[in-house]
């Protein structure tokens, strides 16, 4: 079965991102497909590579990057939400004249249409948030 996952909260403040990750991992372990994880609202903060959590804590952004790489999961950050919160890739850096970018490995910035598409193309869309 094809799953899509929506993450509406940032890392560390809410458990939502942890639950979404555990769910996605379990779905893959059970032989299902996770086609896309869409990050919306404060969820876009999962997609920065600049976080440095303490060594005894999980690294949430890296964990998503690894999941994306290992299982071909499309990690999509909503562009409008990302612009408001300072999540920037090379294209956005150039377009908006920023002095750097911070998008994490395996993440890409795109529009809300990607969420709608994920809802249409997957068998189940599971939401995690506040």
């Amino acid at each position: 079965m094809k799953f899509a996952v929506l993450v509406n909260e940032g890392p560390y403040t809410h458990q939502a991102s942890d639950s979404a990750y555990r769910f996605a991992q379990a779905a893959l372990d059970e032989g299902h497909e996770v086609t896309r994880v869409f990050f919306y609202h404060d969820g876009v903060n999962n997609g920065t590579r600049l976080t440095t959590p303490p060594q005894d804590d999980r690294h949430i952004a890296n964990r998503w990057s690894e999941l994306g790489k290992e299982h071909g999961v499309d990690l999509v950050v909503c562009v409008a939400a990302a612009q408001r919160r300072g999540i920037v890739d090379e294209d956005e850096q150039r377009r908006n004249g920023k002095d750097g970018n911070n998008i994490a490995d395996g993440f890409r910035i795109s529009g809300l249409g990607q969420l709608i598409e994920a809802g249409i193309q997957s068998d189940r869309l599971i939401s995690f948030g506040d």
């Binding site: 799953f3 379990a26 189940r124 939401s127």
Partner: peptide, 20 residues
């Protein structure tokens, strides 16, 4: 249930509604 059980519940149901 564990996370695998969560996945199974989602598979078995035609729709999933999150009460966020």
């Amino acid at each position: 249930v564990d996370y695998a059980g969560f996945v199974k519940l989602a598979v078995d149901a035609p729709r999933v509604q999150s009460w966020l």
